[in-house]
C-alpha cells in the first residue's frame, strides 16, 4: 500500500513538474517550426529568466510578478536575435538549404555569449531562489505550493498561446508563415516581423518557465544547457508545431524523470528519455501529435 502511494505521489509530482517542460517546449517548437532555427540558446533564456527572477526578488519584487518584467525583456532579446542575426544569416547563406545548419552554428555562438556574459555578471554559484515552499499534504507525501502554482501558470499560458495561434490575426499569420512564407507575403503578411515575433514569443515562454523553475530549485548560470536538451527531447517527442503535443510530451517526460529518479538512479534520466525518443521516432517519425 505504501509503495502504491509512493508511486502515485511520484507520478503527481511528475505531472505537475511536466507542465513547465511543456511550456518550455512550446516556445522552442515555435522557433524550430516557424523560424527554422534549431535554437540551442533556448535553455539559456530559461536560465536568464530564473536568474533575473532571483535578482528582482532581492530588490523586493515578488517572483510571481517577475514574469511581467522578465517576459518582455526576453521577448525583446528573442525578437532582436531573429530580426538581426538569423535574418542576416538567411540573407547571406550560400544556398537556402544551408540555412538550418548555419543558423544552428550561429545559435551556438549566441549560447556561449549569453552563458559567459551571465557568468561574468552573476558568477557560477547556486543562488537560493526558492519561493512558496510551504508543503501541502497529499496521499502520504507533501507537495510544495510552488509545484502547484507553477503547473497552473504553465497550463494557463499554454492555453493562452494555443488560443493566440488558432484565433488571433497574428496567430493565424504565424501559422500561414510556418507553412508557406511567399504565399503569406501575398496575403499582406510581413513575414520578417512575424518571424521575429515568433522568436520573441519563444524567448518569453522560456523566461516564464525560468521563473517557475526558480521557485522550485536554486538557479545558476550553468543550468541552461541541460534545459535545452530537455526542451529538444520534449519537442521531438510531442511533434513540431503542436501546442497540445508539447504539453503531453512535457508531462510524460516529467513523470518519467520522477519515476527514474525515485525508483532507479537520477543519472539515468537523460538516457531513458533518449531511449524513449529512439523508439518513438522509429515507430512515428513525427512525434506523438506531429503533422505529416
Amino acid at each position: 500500500m505504501a509503495e502504491a502511494e509512493r508511486l502515485l505521489g511520484l507520478i503527481t509530482i511528475g505531472i505537475l513538474a511536466g507542465g513547465v517542460y511543456g511550456l518550455l517546449a512550446v516556445g522552442l517548437s515555435l522557433q524550430i517550426g516557424v523560424c527554422r532555427v534549431l535554437n540551442i540558446t533556448h535553455g539559456e533564456f530559461l536560465m536568464l529568466g530564473g536568474i533575473l527572477t532571483f535578482t528582482f526578488s532581492q530588490l523586493g519584487i515578488n517572483p510571481l510578478l517577475a514574469p511581467v518584467i522578465v517576459g518582455p525583456i526576453l521577448f525583446g532579446l528573442g525578437f532582436l536575435l531573429q530580426a538581426t542575426l538569423f535574418r542576416g544569416v538567411k540573407a547571406r547563406v550560400p544556398s537556402p538549404s544551408a540555412f538550418e545548419g548555419n543558423a544552428l552554428l550561429a545559435a551556438f555562438g549566441v549560447m556561449y555569449v549569453i552563458q559567459y556574459l551571465a557568468r561574468i555578471r552573476f558568477g557560477t554559484q547556486s543562488l537560493p531562489s526558492q519561493y512558496l515552499t510551504q508543503p501541502v499534504p497529499y496521499v502520504g507525501i507533501n507537495l510544495a505550493v510552488n509545484l502547484i502554482v507553477g503547473f497552473a501558470i504553465a497550463a494557463a499560458l499554454g492555453i493562452a498561446v494555443y488560443l493566440f495561434l488558432t484565433r488571433s490575426r497574428v496567430g493565424k499569420a504565424i501559422r500561414a508563415t510556418a507553412e508557406d512564407p511567399p504565399t503569406a507575403e501575398l496575403m499582406g503578411v510581413n513575414t520578417n516581423t512575424i518571424l521575429a515575433v515568433c522568436f520573441g514569443l519563444g524567448g518569453l515562454l522560456a523566461a516564464v518557465a525560468g521563473t517557475l523553475v526558480s521557485m522550485r530549485t536554486p538557479v545558476s548560470t550553468a543550468m541552461g544547457f541541460n534545459n535545452t536538451v530537455i526542451a529538444l527531447i520534449v519537442v521531438t517527442l510531442g511533434g513540431l508545431g503542436s501546442v497540445p503535443g508539447s504539453f503531453i510530451a512535457g508531462i510524460i517526460i516529467g513523470i518519467v524523470s520522477m519515476l527514474v529518479a525515485g525508483l532507479w538512479e537520477s543519472v539515468l534520466i537523460v538516457p531513458v528519455y533518449y531511449a524513449m525518443l529512439m523508439v518513438l521516432l522509429l515507430v512515428r517519425p513525427t512525434g506523438i501529435l506531429g503533422k505529416k
Binding site: R169, K172, A173, R175, A176, A178, E179, D180, T183, A184, M187, G188, V189, K291
Partner: peptide, 19 residues
Amino acid sequence: RKLFSDMTVGDNLEMGAYS
C-alpha cells in the same frame, strides 16, 4: 494548390483579409 493546408477553409479566407 497554394492554400494553407493546415488551416480550415474559414481561416484561409480570413488570411486574405490580413491587412
